[in-house]
Amino acid sequence: MIEALDVGKRFGKVTALDSVSLEVPRGSVLGLLGHNGAGKTTLVNILATMITPSSGTARVAGYDVVSDGSKVRQRIGLTGQFASVDEDLTGMANLVLIARLLGAGRQQARERADELLAAFDLSDAATRPVQGYSGGMRRRLDLAASLVGQPEVVFLDEPTTGLDPVSRNAMWAVVQRLVGDGTTILLTTQYLEEADRLADSIVVLSHGRVVAAGTSAAMKAGLGRRTVTARLRTNLEALDARTVLERGGLAPALDESRDSLIVPVQGFQDLSTIVRLLGEARIEPAEVALTEATLDDVYLALAADEHKVSV
């Protein structure tokens, strides 16, 4: 549904995107992760036909974003990084305006606006000018505005930035619901938890390049980042335990401040190996846990690599 092939974008001397390729199948969610300035917004803007790429091609809903821009615009909804609603108009008037521009009749437009205002908990504020809205209300109105035309593809640029936890959960529910109804979504985020929760697949951008791509599970597995953490009762015990595990062929790292050993492992069977080795040596840990790598680990690992390269 969304395909980008070697998309590049230069702003004068700044290379915002450098040959980015990605694909989002119909009805799925792609999470685009990246630090500030990585090029997330630039990529979204290219896919939403707001700006033209300097190189490469991209297709959205089957149409080329450059040569068939108007066809693409009929099929997408964009919630940009910064709210784009008319401050002078009421929430209601904003949505009606958009529905009318999309081709709805007066009556249809009002109905659609009512429906969306109710869904986004804005009915009470419907007749107030947007000027008086809170940041979260604006954000919700903005999202509602991009869904007026029931688009096939929705772009969400940092949709939950600046939302409180309740609104964030609500936003997640909206996204899940959209996907359930068959909408294809590309969302950018700085929140790894968000990408992990919502996205079927993840692309990590760094300095305009794709540095990692795949499902969140595959990405974690690929990094071999499952770890067993064993907390011992004394420092001495921790040192003993390290020797035992090293003899057993593992590579434990000692976290001295917490008398803990952190052992990278392949899978569940390694956990039982660790328990057995420690048991045989009569070492009794206070706590043993197998932890899945979080996306944070992935991200930090990539950032660390990045750092090494650039130093």
Binding site: G103, A118, A173, V174
Partner: peptide, 21 residues
């Protein structure tokens, strides 16, 4: 905000009823 209210049309519109501008 979403699960407390009546269902809202969110997913893609069937192309026959879609507003295309």
């Amino acid at each position: 905000m979403v699960d407390t209210v009546q269902p809202v049309r969110t997913g893609p519109a069937p192309s026959a009823t879609a507003w295309h501008g």
